[in-house]
Simulated scan of single mutants.
Amino acid sequence: MKGFSLTRIAAVLVKEFTQLRRDRITYAMILVMPLMQLLLFGYAINTDPRHLPAAVVSHDHGRFANALVATLERTSYVDVRHLPASEDEMDGLLRRGEISLALTIPPDFTQRVLKGDRAQILAEVDATDPTAAGGVATAVASLPANALRQELKGVAAKPTNAPPFEVVVHRLYNPEGITSYNIVPGLLAIILSMTLVMMTAMAVTREVERGTMESLLSMPATAFEVMIGKLLPYVAVGILQTIVVLTLARLLFAVPMAHTLAGWVALSTGIVLFITGNLALGYCISTVVRSQLQAMQISMFYMMPSLFLSGFMFPFQGLPGWAQVIGEVIPITHFLRIIRGSLLKGQVLADMGTDLVALCGFLIVVTVLTIARSRTTLD
Rank of each mutant, 00 (worst) to 15 (best):
T7D: 02
L13N: 09
F17V: 11
L20P: 00
R21K: 13
R22D: 06
D23Y: 04
D23H: 12
I25R: 07
T26S: 11
T26Y: 05
M29T: 04
I30Y: 07
L31R: 07
D48E: 15
V56A: 05
D60G: 11
H61I: 00
G62K: 08
N66T: 11
A70L: 11
E73P: 06
T75V: 11
V78A: 05
H82K: 06
H82A: 14
E89P: 00
G92W: 04
I99P: 02
I99Q: 05
S100N: 15
T104G: 07
T104L: 13
P106G: 02
D108M: 08
V113K: 01
A119C: 05
Q120H: 08
I121D: 02
L122R: 14
A123S: 04
T128D: 04
T131F: 01
A132P: 00
A141D: 13
A147G: 07
A156E: 13
P159S: 10
F165C: 03
V169G: 01
Y173K: 10
P175D: 07
S180W: 02
I183F: 08
I183G: 01
S193Q: 15
T195F: 11
M198H: 03
M198F: 02
M199I: 04
M202L: 03
L216Q: 09
L231V: 01
I239N: 08
T242C: 12
L246W: 07
A249R: 09
R250Q: 14
L251H: 09
H259C: 00
L261D: 06
G263H: 06
V265H: 03
V265C: 09
G277I: 13
L281N: 06
T287A: 11
V288Q: 10
S291W: 10
Y302T: 10
M303F: 14
M304A: 06
S306M: 09
L307M: 11
L307A: 04
F308R: 01
S310K: 05
F314T: 12
P315K: 02
L319Q: 06
A323W: 02
V329D: 01
G341S: 08
G341R: 07
K345A: 10
D351S: 06
M352S: 08
L356A: 08
V357K: 13
F362I: 12
V365E: 09
V366P: 09
T367C: 04
T367N: 09
R373M: 15
T377Y: 11
D379V: 08
D379K: 15
D379L: 12
